[in-house]
Design a protein around this nucleic acid. Structure first.
Lengths: 101, 101
DNA sequence: TATACATATGATTATATGTTCAAGTGTCTA
DNA sequence: TAGACACTTGAACATATAATCATATGTATA
């Protein structure tokens, strides 16, 4: 009955999902709007299979959602919080980079 | 010369650091203020060695900082962005939990 | 300065995770 | 309805990572 543990596990899973540079590239690529798999794969220079695996991971954690249009599946960020977390992460990183120079 | 890649690697490293439930427990435990290693270790029910390893990881990424007072080392969050990211993460998770019920 | 305390570090090992490849599913169009 | 497209899935493998244990370091105090 340890909800604290589950909560920690769930939240850390979300951060872990963003903790892979390929997946992070994907979600950052979705900040401007929806994209289909082949588009993401080619712009990130990864295989469609790899993109698909990562998108599955992100979708299971409800970080992204998708809709079908014909043969294509368009992915987008699922929730405003995801956008916020990414924005602050970007700020944090920019701030660190500035300090280092 | 690929700064984009480095930027992605650095940012994903930060998220990855928060993507382990033990480390996440540590930083959440620091949201209320500084704590020493033995204190963190006992409250999270982990060994001091494990706590120390994780704190080292977090410190290398500049997510936490420390100060010495006598024999003890007091750790705290390094930067306001870290606090913000955690806050939004907590909100996101609470929001998801609510939807699920 | 010897001892205890608080923490750090390095090596080892077991597990988790990302990538790849081959095969499968769903959708459109000729 | 056959073929092409767009994507998904599962298995296999290689690498990354966390936990543990033994040892080392830094600090206070008797």
């Amino acid at each position: 009955m340890d909800r604290t543990r589950d909560f920690l596990d769930d939240l850390s899973s979300m951060f872990r999902a963003l903790g892979d540079s390929t997946r992070l590239g994907i979600v950052l690529g979705l900040m401007d709007g929806e994209r289909c798999v082949s588009d993401l794969a080619s712009s990130l220079d990864i295989s469609e299979s790899s993109a698909s695996h990562h998108l599955r991971n992100l979708r299971q954690l409800r970080l992204v959602k998708r809709r079908r249009d014909g043969k294509k599946l368009f992915y987008s960020l699922d929730d405003h919080h995801v956008y916020l977390i990414l924005t602050i992460g970007l700020e944090h990183q920019a701030h660190k980079d500035k300090e280092e120079s």
